[in-house]
């Protein structure tokens, strides 16, 4: 019978123990990665199409692996139930209105279930809750989208080809511009006119700018009106006075109008003068008498002026006034 020495037995024991510990360590590590040994909760979601998702794929929340897909099974003819194991620590941050979606881990990577962040005020999920899902874009949809893009690009290329052919054949404005020298010359002249117009516009704008500056900071009436508060107040008073005067004028005109109405009225003096011949004759007589009276009065005044009694007091002065009148 072969017998091992104690040192060899120790060595063999260490060899076996270390191998077993490594095996257990790796198993535990993988189990931790798969959330087998931690404090976890189960949560569910439904998809119409899981796009190749498998049990064991990762669950990601904010880009961090927080669990794994536990089981996938058909719930109905068009719905797939996905059971997920999520660590309880992470579940405190996953809200009830968070949404689960299926994404690819890189271009050629595994599928992952990505859980979006919910609203901050919503309560977090509990064990057995069901999350809402967002359907993944299927490969068919992506291909259809690519096909549409490809068709559009095809159409675009065809249009570009037509345009380039027309240009090549001197069709259209651009084609003539490129090939017709006369047209090109006219176009150049037009451009020159445009250039001059723009220069003029620039000069005008400079002058307008200067005027605006003068109006703002100059010494004229408008800058003073704009900037001088005393003058503005005076102007305001003037305007008030004008307003008052215009009101008075309106009142006066109204009264004149009433007066005119009364003159035109049948009872008025003018109307009586125009329509009543007796009154008119009487008035004519009166006026004639007044005229005669005035003539008599003038003669009387002349007589008085020439009387010696008055000349006695005003003799020198009257002579000087006569001289002045003669000059």
């Amino acid at each position: 019978m072969s017998k091992l020495s104690t040192s060899k037995q120790l060595s063999l024991g260490a060899f076996v123990a270390l191998g077993v510990i490594i095996a257990i360590g790796v198993v535990y590590y993988l189990g931790t990665k798969r959330q087998w040994f931690g404090d976890n909760i189960s949560t569910y979601t439904y998809f119409n199409n899981v796009s190749g998702l498998q049990a064991g794929n990762n669950i990601r929340f904010s880009g961090i692996n927080v669990g794994t897909v536990e089981r996938i099974r058909l719930a109905s003819d068009s719905t797939v139930l996905v059971e997920m194991i999520v660590s309880r620590e992470a579940s405190g941050f996953i809200k009830e209105d968070s949404r689960a979606s299926i994404e690819s881990d890189g271009l050629m990577g595994n599928k992952v279930v990505s859980i979006s962040a919910g609203s901050p005020d919503a309560p977090h999920i509990e064990d057995g809750d069901t999350l809402r899902s967002r359907s993944p874009a299927s490969l068919d949809q992506v291909i259809a989208s690519f096909k549409t893009t490809s068709d559009n690009a095809n159409e675009l290329t065809k249009n570009l080809r037509d345009i380039s052919e027309k240009i090549q054949n001197s069709e259209g404005l651009l084609g003539k511009l490129l090939t017709d020298s006369a047209m090109a010359g006219r176009f150049e002249t037009t451009l020159e006119s445009f250039r001059e117009t723009s220069l003029n516009t620039e000069r005008i704008s400079v002058r307008v700018s200067g005027m605006a500056r003068d109006m703002q900071y100059g010494d004229g009436l408008i800058p003073r009106l704009l900037n001088d508060s005393v003058m503005a107040e005076n102007l305001s008073h003037t305007m008030d006075s004008l307003s008052y005067a215009s009101r008075n004028l309106a009142s006066t005109s109204r009264k004149l109008e009433e007066f005119a109405d009364r003159l035109n009225n049948e009872e008025g003096a003018v109307n009586l003068l125009l329509t009543d011949s007796i009154f008119a004759n009487d008035l004519e007589k009166t006026l004639r008498n007044v005229k005669d009276g005035t003539t008599d009065l003038d003669e009387l005044v002349q007589t008085v002026n020439e009387s010696w009694l008055l000349n006695l007091f005003n003799g020198d002065k009257s002579k000087e006034e006569d001289k002045k009148n003669k000059k």
Binding site: M1, S2, K3, L4, K8, Q9, S11, L12, F15, V16
Partner: peptide, 18 residues
């Protein structure tokens, strides 16, 4: 059951191949 012989072979055949 030759347990000691098992240990011996485990050492000589197994561990010595490490």
């Amino acid at each position: 059951f030759e347990i000691r012989e098992v240990f011996y072979h485990a050492y000589s055949l197994g561990q010595k191949s490490l």
